Deep mutational scan, measured.
Amino acid sequence: MEVVDPQQLGMFTEGELMSVGMDTFIHRIDSTEVIYQPRRKRAKLIGKYLMGDLLGEGSYGKVKEVLDSETLCRRAVKILKKKKLRRIPNGEANVKKEIQLLRRLRHKNVIQLVDVLYNEEKQKMYMVMEYCVCGMQEMLDSVPEKRFPVCQAHGYFCQLIDGLEYLHSQGIVHKDIKPGNLLLTTGGTLKISDLGVAEALHPFAADDTCRTSQGSPAFQPPEIANGLDTFSGFKVDIWSAGVTLYNITTGLYPFEGDNIYKLFENIGKGSYAIPGDCGPPLSDLLKGMLEYEPAKRFSIRQIRQHSWFRKKHPPAEAPVPIPPSPDTKDRWRSMTVVPYLEDLHGADEDEDLFDIEDDIIYTQDFTVPGQVPEEEASHNGQRRGLPKAVCMNGTEAAQLSTKSRAEGRAPNPARKACSASSKIRRLSACKQQ
């Protein structure tokens, strides 16, 4: 084909351009004929944790799935940006308080904090938690009735009371019990989460009196709706648990309003109706937990002794299953770290194939690490110290990083047969305790 000078094309009309061969290198194709290559998922490591896909996002930050490269346990990490926390009232204080509380709590029905990582340079905090497959609110939203069968609701409620009793025994008032803060594992274990607005009572406090509340409006008791200066913290949790039980068994809320002012007005009056299909035992329990006067409201001991709580409820309806993943529609909620794991395991070791967030990740503290002497050669063979940054567990980050890069360049065919977990650990520049 004859090559045409581009400067001469402006002298031709459209018809003349076609005659000189423009149609031979300008093609129009339908979008259905285009085959897009999927974007390669680059592996990203935060300390010893391999990052997966997004699980959810809230006002405080994002939650992603991660894999512990040492234990191969599935975890969830809450990623918090200090810049964003400053824009939220009491944001930083709530996060630090939640970390302090979770560090000393150990119960099967309370979410466990596994690790805390802090990135000084990017001003990011990573709260590594045990993995929960789904939230209770997500399960309720997945069915038209917006409720659980009585047998399933009873099982979840009993676990909620177990976890709540443990928190109260530790002198902690949750203040925000609701389905949105109750998570579930694949085995059906309920976990109380989000202790950001919780309050730890003084060890020598005479009672459970509280003065502040930041919980969700629909789950607040009349004493808070009416603006009382002080109130019983434990009875606030009992009320919120009662509203939660009402919601998961009926699909409704005892109090509603077009806006928060109308909602608080209705809560302050204390008038509500219980659907007739709840039955006398459940209705009596709800009335005891939603008692207007805090002094007359049920205690956890009274809830445990109630006939509806103690009764064994046979399954009359099919239980609400864990819904498919909202993004991938995966009904099994498979591990989202698998594509990243395959990338590390299947590809040659190259620095361009993975990302390490930083050479140094500070753990379990908000301060910069200490310094240790770096050896410097002298005339008599002895070495003197220069400062060298280290990880919180004493690992020399720069030395590990250099060693990792040197190993990656060394030709050794046997290394390709290593397991995925050992490869992740070798790529991680800074081991965590």
Rank of each mutant, 00 (worst) to 15 (best):
V4I: 11
P6G: 02
Q7A: 06
Q7V: 11
L9F: 06
G10W: 10
G10M: 13
G10A: 11
M11G: 11
E16Q: 08
L17H: 13
L17W: 14
S19Y: 06
S19I: 10
V20C: 01
G21A: 11
M22T: 15
M22G: 06
M22R: 15
H27W: 04
I29L: 06
D30E: 07
S31A: 12
T32I: 04
Y36N: 14
Q37M: 08
P38T: 05
R39E: 00
R42K: 09
A43R: 15
K44C: 07
K44N: 06
K48W: 04
M51Y: 15
M51T: 08
D53R: 14
L54A: 05
G58V: 00
G58W: 01
K64Q: 14
V66G: 04
V66F: 03
D68P: 06
T71N: 05
A76H: 02
L80A: 08
K82E: 10
K82G: 09
K84C: 15
L85I: 14
I88Y: 15
I88R: 15
N94T: 09
V95E: 05
Q100Y: 01
Q100W: 03
L101Y: 08
L102W: 08
R103I: 06
L105A: 10
R106V: 14
R106S: 12
H107G: 04
K108V: 05
V110S: 02
Q112N: 13
Q112S: 07
D115P: 02
V116I: 02
V116A: 01
N119T: 11
N119W: 14
E120V: 07
K122S: 15
Q123C: 10
K124Y: 09
K124S: 02
V128C: 07
V128Q: 08
Y131I: 08
C132G: 02
C132Y: 03
C134L: 02
M136E: 00
E138R: 00
L140W: 00
D141V: 08
S142F: 11
S142M: 05
V143W: 03
E145H: 10
E145D: 07
R147V: 02
F148P: 00
P149A: 08
P149G: 05
C151G: 03
G155R: 03
Y156C: 01
Y156M: 15
C158G: 02
I161M: 10
I161V: 02
I161C: 06
D162I: 06
D162W: 15
L164R: 00
S169G: 10
Q170S: 05
G171L: 11
H174V: 03
H174C: 05
D176T: 00
D176I: 00
K178G: 02
K178M: 01
G180M: 05
N181T: 00
L183A: 03
L184W: 01
S193M: 01
D194F: 00
V197A: 09
E199G: 06
L201A: 14
L201P: 10
H202T: 05
D208P: 15
D208N: 11
C210W: 03
R211D: 15
T212P: 05
S213T: 06
S213W: 07
S216N: 02
P217S: 02
A218P: 02
A218E: 09
Q220P: 01
A225I: 11
N226L: 06
N226Q: 12
F231S: 02
F231C: 10
F231P: 05
F231I: 15
S232V: 04
F234R: 12
K235W: 13
W239A: 02
V243H: 00
V243R: 01
L245S: 00
L245T: 00
Y246G: 02
I248R: 00
T249N: 03
T249L: 06
G251F: 01
Y253L: 09
Y253V: 14
F255P: 02
E256V: 04
N259M: 10
N259L: 09
E265I: 11
I267A: 06
K269V: 09
G270C: 11
G270R: 11
S271C: 02
Y272L: 03
A273W: 15
I274M: 05
I274C: 05
P275F: 04
C278N: 07
P280D: 12
P280S: 08
P281G: 04
P281W: 02
P281C: 03
L282Y: 06
S283T: 12
D284H: 07
L286E: 01
K287Q: 08
K287S: 05
K287H: 10
G288Y: 03
M289L: 04
L290R: 00
L290N: 00
E293V: 06
P294W: 10
P294A: 11
A295C: 10
A295V: 08
R297C: 00
F298I: 10
R301Y: 14
Q305M: 13
Q305Y: 13
W308G: 01
W308A: 01
R310D: 14
H313G: 07
A318Q: 15
P321M: 15
P323T: 10
P323F: 10
P324W: 03
S325Y: 00
P326E: 14
T328N: 02
K329L: 11
S334Q: 13
S334I: 05
T336C: 09
V337K: 13
V338Q: 13
Y340F: 06
L341E: 14
E342G: 06
D343G: 11
D343V: 08
D343L: 05
L344V: 11
H345C: 08
E349V: 08
E351S: 11
E357R: 11
D359Y: 07
Y362I: 14
T363E: 15
T367A: 11
T367E: 13
T367C: 11
P369G: 14
P369Q: 11
G370L: 11
G370W: 11
Q371C: 10
Q371G: 06
P373S: 12
E374Y: 09
E375G: 12
E376Y: 14
A377Q: 14
A377K: 15
S378G: 05
Q382E: 08
R383Y: 09
R383N: 12
G385W: 09
P387T: 14
P387G: 14
K388Q: 08
A389D: 08
A389E: 13
A389K: 15
C391T: 05
N393I: 11
N393G: 10
T395C: 15
T395P: 10
E396R: 13
Q399K: 04
L400W: 14
L400I: 13
T402E: 14
T402M: 09
R405F: 14
G408S: 14
G408A: 15
A410E: 10
A410G: 09
A410N: 10
S421G: 11
K423A: 03
K423H: 05
I424N: 12
I424K: 09
R425F: 07
R425A: 14
R426H: 15
A429D: 13
